[in-house]
């Protein structure tokens, strides 16, 4: 699946879920932001993360 197709799928999913949870009027208002968020979702989903990279929360210096 190419990037644009994946972005469109994420956007469609977000629009449907927004409509279900917040109603059609709010889903329409969220339209431009949904496009941004769908782009970020593709960025994150496709970036080649290191397989053993754990989630990082707080920060402390090396011991």
């Amino acid at each position: 699946m190419d990037r644009e197709q994946q972005r469109a799928e994420y956007a469609a999913g977000l629009r449907a879920e927004a409509s279900r949870r917040f109603g059609a009027e709010r889903a329409a208002a969220l339209g431009p932001i949904i496009e941004d968020v769908a782009g970020w979702m593709v960025d994150l989903a496709t970036f080649p993360l290191d397989a053993d990279e754990p989630p990082a929360f707080y920060i402390e210096p090396a011991p």
Binding site: A18, R26, V37, E53, A56
Partner: peptide, 17 residues
């Protein structure tokens, strides 16, 4: 509202990034 729709797997990927 958009934050309520962020998928959990991508949230964790963001923390891993």
């Amino acid at each position: 509202e958009l934050g309520m729709l962020v998928p959990g797997d991508l949230y964790v990927r963001a923390l891993r990034v």
